[in-house]
Amino acid sequence: MFRPLVAGFFILLWFSAGLTQEGTPFRYGTTNSIMNLPAWLAKEGELYSKHGLPNLEIIFIQSGTLITMAVVSGEVQFSGAGAASVVAARIQGADVALLACPVDADAVYLIARPGIRTAAELKGKKAAVTRLGSTTHFYLRSALRYAGLDPGKDVQILQLGLEFAGALEKGVIDAAALPFNLAFPYLRKGWPVILDLSKTGFTYPASCVVSTRAFVRGNPEVVDRFLRAYLEAISVIKKDRAFTEKVFAKWLRQSDPEIIKATVKAYADLFKPIPTVPDQGIRAVLEDLSLRSPVPKELVDRPDHFRDHGPLGRLVRGGWVEQLYK
């Protein structure tokens, strides 16, 4: 099913290469985060073809940090990246923008190995993320802070790529902040939950649709077509659980029916019909970044510096979302 592609500084994996009607390849980069489900379902449901982007490529990249770099470099035209890497890149002058975010906050659990019952017991222990600066890194840092720990001092954070979740069971690490589908096996076994981020007021826009402002300006019709397919995919997720479960199982290679059903149910409720980029989520990212490096004061209250609601707003005003839910 997969085949490798070496592109610049990436080793990528992709489904069904192809060209658009104009003969130009368009690519959407994703991690293995469940938040990318709308993009995957649009592919499986042939919604890209329906809206004029036949054979749009879906490319797997290991982390949100690398995905953002891929957008900036032009390797991909769209991506599903967390706000943390996009905001950080934008502060450094990169021409990137958040176009749509499927949720305001993920269902994330700070889970520890058996025997660890309190946050204080994590001091001096190890945790892991896919890559520093990624969404998984932001989840972990946020969870540790909500639990009363200093993520820069109290816990050693390792970069383990896609193996970070499995490292918890193997004993390589002592704790991890895991989204629902990765946390579910541990929850089912009764492993200690140090913190449930969904009960803290935590806001973070994960796996948002990202592009460059130059691409959005130069290709408004392509962006419109993509977002039409993406929005329709969200409506299908909410209406057709059986098909959504098949897509989830295929793209994340999941065979456990309990995990499949529970995860699809959880995220069908979380996905927003109108996936706007929340002010509060951008502020949360800026606050986290400011703890590690200077953030220009003039950018703190300028969410539009990091997002572009223009394409999504036009579809909403034109009645596209309303039409999908009739």
Results as ranks from 00 to 15, higher is better:
residue 207 S to R: 03
residue 233 A to N: 12
residue 324 L to N: 06
residue 266 A to F: 02
residue 50 K to C: 04
residue 110 L to T: 05
residue 111 I to P: 06
residue 217 R to D: 15
residue 35 M to R: 09
residue 290 S to I: 01
residue 292 R to V: 03
residue 61 I to T: 09
residue 37 L to R: 04
residue 248 F to Q: 07
residue 76 V to W: 07
residue 132 L to V: 02
residue 18 G to I: 02
residue 218 G to N: 15
residue 307 R to H: 01
residue 6 V to K: 14
residue 245 E to A: 12
residue 240 D to M: 07
residue 35 M to A: 10
residue 56 L to M: 15
residue 251 W to E: 02
residue 143 A to Y: 04
residue 91 I to Q: 14
residue 232 E to Y: 08
residue 143 A to N: 04
residue 41 L to P: 10
residue 34 I to H: 13
residue 260 I to P: 06
residue 196 D to K: 08
residue 119 A to W: 13
residue 284 A to Q: 09
residue 256 D to C: 03
residue 249 A to N: 05
residue 11 I to E: 09
residue 294 P to H: 13
residue 252 L to H: 06
residue 2 F to S: 12
residue 218 G to V: 01
residue 147 A to E: 13
residue 261 K to C: 00
residue 144 L to F: 08
residue 129 V to I: 08
residue 55 N to M: 00
residue 326 K to N: 08
residue 26 F to Q: 12
residue 23 G to A: 10
residue 205 P to K: 10
residue 162 L to G: 07
residue 301 D to G: 00
residue 10 F to W: 15
residue 267 Y to N: 10
residue 128 A to G: 05
residue 216 V to Q: 07
residue 43 K to V: 01
residue 21 Q to S: 08
residue 95 D to P: 01
residue 141 R to S: 12
residue 165 A to Q: 12
residue 66 L to S: 09
residue 44 E to G: 00
residue 44 E to L: 07
residue 247 V to N: 05
residue 221 E to H: 05
residue 288 D to G: 09
residue 173 I to E: 06
residue 184 F to P: 03
residue 23 G to L: 09
residue 239 K to P: 01
